[in-house]
Structures are given as C-alpha cells and as structure tokens.
C-alpha cells in the first residue's frame, strides 16, 4: 500500500469570518454547582442571619474566619463554632479603578482585608469599604453594613460593605 501524507489544514480567524470554511456553533448549557461544604455552608447561613462565625482549633487555640473544618497549622480537626463581632480592623486595602473584567470605574472600589473582632490576630476576610474617603488608613476600625434581611441570600455580599467606626461608637 502506498504511503500517503495528508496536508495539514490550518484554520485562521479570517477563514471563519470570511466564510472560507463551513462550521457549526453551539452554546452548551454549561451550568455548575459548587458545594460550599460544611464549614462554608454554615458560614453562609450565618451571614444570611446577619452574623459572622468562626471555628477554633483545639491544639493552637486559633479562632479562624472564614471557618474551616481543619486547622492548616496543626492539621487537626477544628472542634467549635465561635460567634464573632461584625466589627474589625483594616489590615490592608487597595483602591481599584477597574472591575474584574477590566471595565473602568468612575469611582474606585476599596477592597480591604478586615481583621474580625473575636478572631485570632491576622484572621480576616476580604470585603469592600464604604463611606471612607478621605481618611482611609491601615488600622482603621470598621463595622459591617448588612443588607436588609429580605435581600440576603446566604452570600458574602449579604454584607454590603464595611464603614468606619468613630471612637465614640466603640
């Protein structure tokens, strides 16, 4: 049998756009459901109820938020739910002038890592700051502004943002 070498066929964008090649397109209905798991599942339910909750480690006594079912320091199971405050301290922040899909923002968003009161030092969550300009600084005391209960869905966005706390409010 004779050997036959097929010519490679390269298709470029223009071949499709200018109709040089026949093709079919379709949009798969690609839905997904990501299981939140035990710890984050409870965390989200508590957010819906307007509360922050953490988990503590029986070995190192750390209180962790977001909660997790094992301690990544000691590799042991965490064993207690710990209710936390909805106040905290700004550990770091940024001014963000574009959205995640690179659309320019007129007014910058201010994402921050907020150390939550009642959790161990350095334990915090990423959220947005509001009502802060000017005077935004690291170490600023902040409090969660919750959405109205009927608008909460069991999501981190059940907190609308964190606003500065005046010393008189402490």
């Amino acid at each position: 049998m004779e050997e036959f070498v097929y010519d490679a066929v390269y298709l470029r964008r223009e071949d499709f756009e200018e109709g040089r090649v026949l093709f079919e397109t379709w949009d798969p209905n690609a839905q997904y459901a990501w299981d939140a798991g035990v710890a984050i599942g409870r965390y989200l339910q508590e957010l819906k109820a307007g509360r922050l909750i953490g988990r503590s480690c029986p070995e190192c006594q750390r209180i962790m938020i977001p909660p997790r079912m094992f301690c990544e320091s000691c590799f042991c199971a965490t064993d207690q739910w710990v209710p936390l405050e909805d106040t905290g301290t700004v550990l770091t922040f940024s001014r963000c002038y574009v959205t995640w899909d690179v659309i320019q923002l007129e007014k910058p968003k201010m994402p921050a890592v907020i150390e939550i009161d009642g959790a161990s030092p350095g334990m915090g969550i990423l959220h947005l700051l509001g009502e802060v300009d000017p005077g935004l600084e690291i170490g600023m005391r902040v409090q969660a502004i919750w959405k109205p209960p009927e608008e909460r869905s069991g999501s981190i966005t059940d907190i609308a943002y964190f606003r500065p706390l005046e010393p008189s409010e402490e």
Binding site: Q31, W34, A36, R42
Partner: peptide, 9 residues
C-alpha cells in the same frame, strides 16, 4: 444545610 454556588460557564 447543603449550600452550593450555582453559575453558568
């Protein structure tokens, strides 16, 4: 209690 995030790709 089983919460999941739903989305479209």
């Amino acid at each position: 209690d089983a919460l999941s995030w739903r989305g479209d790709m």
